[in-house]
């Protein structure tokens, strides 16, 4: 799972009012290089919760993202490169996602988060 997906996920356990962002527990991170598409990044930027991305990237061992970001920064190749790397090249391979309100853990195995809810959580 990449941080792109992490940035979109929000715990939907019954009764939880703010399930975002899921805290990341890291056991294993892998990096996979992919082509950078600036159009996609520019389009996505408005939808990204920046602080959550910065924190998630740091948890995954990447601390190069600026604390704050605004759309004018999208003109900078260096910024785009870092944004791209954090969003699309870091994969949480083993670990867990943790609901910020309840502390419930969603395990991540072989890169696949298990988001299945128990019956009493629906």
């Amino acid at each position: 799972m990449r941080l792109l997906t992490h940035n979109m996920l929000s715990s939907n356990i019954k009764g939880v009012s703010n399930g975002f962002p899921l805290r990341i527990e890291v056991e294993k991170v892998i990096e996979k290089e992919v082509d950078c598409n600036p159009d996609f990044l520019i389009n996505m930027f408005a939808k990204i919760e920046w602080k959550a991305l910065v924190d998630a990237a740091r948890t995954m061992g990447y601390a190069e993202l600026p604390e704050e970001a605004e759309s004018s920064m999208l003109d900078s190749d260096e910024f785009l490169r870092k944004f791209h790397h954090a969003l699309l090249e870091l994969h949480l391979e083993e670990g867990a996602l943790v609901c910020p309100e309840t502390g419930r853990k969603f395990p991540v195995n072989k890169g696949i988060p298990n988001m299945l809810l128990h019956e009493d959580e629906v």
Binding site: M8, E49, L116
Partner: peptide
């Protein structure tokens, strides 16, 4: 899917339980 190295991220989940996603992002 992961054996075939698909490029999307995949989640184990039940659509009948609702999607655990933020509003307005997809």
């Amino acid at each position: 899917a992961s054996e075939r190295e698909v490029e999307g991220d995949i989640l184990l989940g039940d659509m009948g339980q609702g999607l655990a996603l933020r509003p307005g992002v997809i």
